[in-house]
Write a protein that binds this DNA or RNA. Structure first.
Lengths: 205, 205
DNA sequence: CCAATTATAGAACGATCGTTCTAGACAGCT
DNA sequence: AGCTGTCTAGAACGATCGTTCTATAATTGG
């Protein structure tokens, strides 16, 4: 047998792998059964390790939760800003923003579910981090809508409410879209969601 | 002291009152902490009665849950149909449908939250009842959108997706609208949500 | 007013929860 | 090879879970 020396087998790398595997199955279980409905034993069994092993990597259940938040939701504002960076036409910016948001939601489908479901159920620290991110996202949307209004392309009304409505459509997308859909079908669906946000149900008048 | 003889003090009435009070606080706790996050003891303590008293009125925790479903969500399809009954103009029908839906959601705010949060977490029977109602609601929306399309007032695309988008806006309304808002403010908000559904973000063009 | 039913409380059950403790297996380094 | 720190398992802890049991108080119907 050949002696295989892994390039990445430093203590730090092993630690990272041990954590990653736990986070991976925790996401799955939290998304399916919620925070209170998922036990440390469930998670340990799912990775085929012991309960105390989980505690070796994470201080407690909530730290595991926060690790999930860390690797997914926290990146959302940055990705949204990146998607509109450099685009100047307001309508194009809105479209790029929505498309990127739908894309990220799709990518972190389970994570997104978790944070919508157990939004207000965590300790002060977790809750605060979650709330802060949501406020950040809202700010991005409000700014874009103000840009749209500046060029007379936004209907009258409270901009925040319009932002909430957009977010409603986008976040609800996670509930009904099929993860199994093919690429072509998915693009078509995203197009229609975007069309709804821009023009609602109406064709012309 | 005057001897007060209640008009409604039959065993059946007492039973109903005993149940009602439990359902009332269960709604509050389930909405705040979720199904798994709420214990029978929490509920018993909140009504100031004993744990076994809860079991006197409800077979188990899930039966209590189903009682909540019974008194709120189950009535939704009927109320939606009632709101559009007799209205002929398709646009007016859609508006009436959305307004009624927002109204009912507001009225059963906590109940709605519960069933969005713990949607897929219950036993077969509870889950099935919940799913059936949601399918019924979707059917109502699809039918209305078909009516709109028949007169050329609906943009192209899959009608079901448009229905989902509408439901996203409506259901998300629960997340951000303030229950404390006054009547005038609320009507104004509802107007804007409806306007978004009909025309999206765009003014004209 | 008394028997029968209903409402309630309190203790207890086994299961499971999050968490901790103890101790052995394994790795990396000298 | 032997030491040092990381990784892992298993048992155990007290708390709490949903649920049941037993018994007492309250209420109703005759």
């Amino acid at each position: 047998m050949a002696r295989v020396v892994s390039l990445k087998n430093s203590p730090a790398a092993r630690e990272a792998r041990g954590r990653e595997e736990l986070v991976e199955v925790a996401v799955e279980l939290f998304a399916r059964n919620g925070f209170a409905g998922t036990s440390i034993r469930d998670i340990a069994d799912a990775v085929g390790r012991s309960v105390s092993n989980v505690y070796h990597y994470f201080e407690n259940k909530e730290a595991l939760w926060l690790a999930i938040l860390e690797r997914s939701v926290k990146a959302l504002p940055g990705r949204l800003r990146g998607a509109i960076d450099g685009v100047s036409e307001p309508r194009t910016r809105i479209a790029a923003l929505v498309r990127e948001h739908l894309d990220v939601s799709e990518q972190y489908r389970r994570e997104s579910r978790i944070f919508f479901i157990d939004e207000e159920r965590l300790s002060a620290s977790g809750n605060k981090a979650n709330k802060r991110i949501q406020r950040e996202i809202l700010t991005i949307y409000v700014a874009e809508l103000e840009g749209l209004r500046a060029v007379g392309l936004l209907a009258d009304g409270d901009i925040r409410i319009t932002a909430f409505n957009m977010l409603g459509v986008i976040n609800w997308y996670l509930r009904w879209s099929k993860p199994s859909a093919g690429q072509a079908k998915r693009e078509q669906t995203v197009d229609q969601v975007l069309a709804f946000i821009l023009r609602g149900t109406g064709s012309e008048k």
